[in-house]
Amino acid sequence: MKVRIALRIVEWTSLPLLLFAGLMVISGYGLTSEAARNASLGLLTFSRSQTIHLSRLIKLGFVSLLLLHTYTGTEVLGEKLRVGGRKRLASVVEYGVIAFLIYVGWITLNGEFGG
């Protein structure tokens, strides 16, 4: 993947990823912490947190953005490392991230559609 395109994807996925990640984190605490619910100024209730946190759209949106953003971000980082003469480290980072992202995607697929 060309670095320029990768960088563009990183930039464009940042804000939606922030939104989705924020929703997942907030609603996760809303599910499991009474203190968090109290601190939310009345926005988070257990059932609202449940609706957000268990929404397939939000979960899949979050994971898709996470995979896309992280993969392209790693491509950019890898290229930077290569330009700096650290080819070995670049490969280790890239392959490590690919393996981890595939694992995340696999768990997500099974969690959502595995019955």
Binding site: E94, Y95, I98, A99, I102, Y103, W106, N110
Partner: peptide, 18 residues
């Protein structure tokens, strides 16, 4: 190389799971 590596990881996961 990366595509092959990705495929390899995926196959490992499928075999590991099932």
């Amino acid at each position: 190389k990366k595509e092959l590596f990705a495929l390899f990881v995926l196959i490992l996961l499928i075999l590991g799971t099932y």
